[in-house]
Design a binder for these strands. Structure first.
Lengths: 97, 97
DNA sequence: TAATTTGGTTTATAAAATAAACTAATTTAT
DNA sequence: ATAAATTAGTTTATTTTATAAACCAAATTA
């Protein structure tokens, strides 16, 4: 009947992060912060969780002299996102008569 | 960019309850329990929250000698559900090119 | 050189989800 | 008749989670 919803993706902020990365594949921390409106602290925590799950990878480089944290979605992350969207449809009746 | 998600609906079990009631308008407690696979305790708590928000109304009657709890979706609940689905689309790119 | 900004992380708190334990009545079995 | 099991839930307790507040370090600006 209802497909279970991946708890890692069923979170407003983590879903927003993944949604951005599904489109753009990678993005810098401050950009994600701006687009999602999240606080840096919250974003840092949720990025860690997605990285721990292997849904994204986090690369720490420098941009000139400043640190620059880049988040990139993984194949696993893309698949998880698509599975989540499919599961959601069992609740939403999207496109049903 | 991303529309906020009603926290009352952004919960797996509450969303499942509302999804059932969107189709059927009303349902008995044990039926919802069976369809969602939830424990009675969890279901009781989440039904209370939806009722407190005015998204459903709960009518306690009897079916023969046994108590019978009926949940019915309200207009407010239907509107909230539809708004939630719309908000979700800002994360999912459903039907986008 | 002092204050501010940038780019975050760590820690603490508040809220939520969930299950376990419990209540009460009914039905079934002995 | 009475004991056991089932139905129909509620209440309480525990665990997770989300979130913000506090913090740190380096770079920039005044």
């Amino acid at each position: 009947m209802f497909q279970p919803l991946d708890p890692l993706l069923h979170s407003e902020l983590r879903l927003a992060i993944m949604s951005l990365l599904i489109s753009d594949l990678e993005a810098e921390f401050p950009y994600i912060k701006e687009q999602t409106g999240a606080t840096a602290g919250n974003l840092s925590v949720q990025v860690d969780k997605l990285a721990a799950a292997g849904y994204i990878e986090v690369v720490k480089t420098f941009k000139g002299k400043r640190p620059c944290t880049i988040c990139r979605i993984t194949l696993k992350g893309q698949q998880a996102f698509e599975a989540y969207v499919e599961a959601l449809k069992s609740y939403l009746q999207i496109g049903k008569p």
